[in-house]
Amino acid sequence: HCIKHHMLDAKWMAFIDIDEFLFSPVADKVTDVLGRFDGAPAVGVFSPYFGSAGHEQRPPVPISRAFTKRSPLSKISAKTIANPRWIRAIRNVHLYKYWRGETIDTMGRPFQGDRPVLDLLRLNHYWSRSLSDLQTKIQRGDASTPVPRDSDWHFAAEKDMNAEDDASILPVLDRVFGKAEDAAKAG
């Protein structure tokens, strides 16, 4: 629906989940990075899974500051930022077929999910947030199927999502929000 009705409204559309934060480790604006890929129909962005970092309840700070532990990069997903005018067909909710060309990674290579590149674009997936948030997610059920969520599986998966420290988004937050604070002081 979005592609069909809004393909002319945007040069790029990111097809991501509500619990994912898209950012660039090297630029304040994602659009500054996307300009490098104007000739491609889409850019694949890798999405590491972030866990609870041991928090039973969600701390009173932004999610991206509270949850800085993630799964190993061997367990990573990916999403697509596509030029909607190039999309010919939908393969699944995150992958598409194009009139010409294919999804590339940020190094300009054909996109493959087995070699993560996190240099120019990243998509942190805050999969569980706190353990109480995860319990709520399990009880709510899956958004795309009527199958109930398996509590044991979700809590086992969540343990793997706390294996490595990853605070890569924090300097970006400091740069972006620091600039907003400076502008507010000057204005």
Score class of each variant (00 low, 15 high):
34 L>T: 02
70 R>Y: 06
76 I>R: 12
80 T>K: 12
75 K>T: 10
28 D>F: 13
21 F>N: 00
39 G>M: 01
63 I>C: 03
43 V>C: 09
41 P>C: 05
26 V>C: 14
47 S>Y: 05
59 P>Y: 06
31 T>L: 15
45 V>T: 03
15 F>P: 01
80 T>E: 05
56 E>M: 11
63 I>M: 11
77 S>M: 06
18 I>G: 03
38 D>M: 09
17 D>F: 13
39 G>R: 11
56 E>N: 02
46 F>N: 09
80 T>W: 11
66 A>K: 05
47 S>R: 04
68 T>I: 12
32 D>C: 06
67 F>M: 05
32 D>S: 15
75 K>N: 14
66 A>L: 04
79 K>I: 07
78 A>W: 07
38 D>E: 11
41 P>I: 03
71 S>F: 03
63 I>A: 13
34 L>V: 04
18 I>F: 09
39 G>L: 01
75 K>C: 02
49 Y>G: 04
83 N>T: 10
44 G>F: 07
30 V>S: 08
47 S>W: 08
63 I>W: 09
53 A>W: 02
45 V>W: 08
52 S>N: 10
18 I>L: 11
28 D>M: 15
23 F>S: 01
80 T>A: 12
20 E>Q: 14
67 F>C: 04
19 D>Q: 06
82 A>Q: 08
61 V>Q: 14
37 F>M: 00
79 K>V: 04
26 V>N: 14
84 P>V: 08
59 P>D: 06
44 G>E: 07
29 K>E: 14
53 A>T: 07
81 I>A: 03
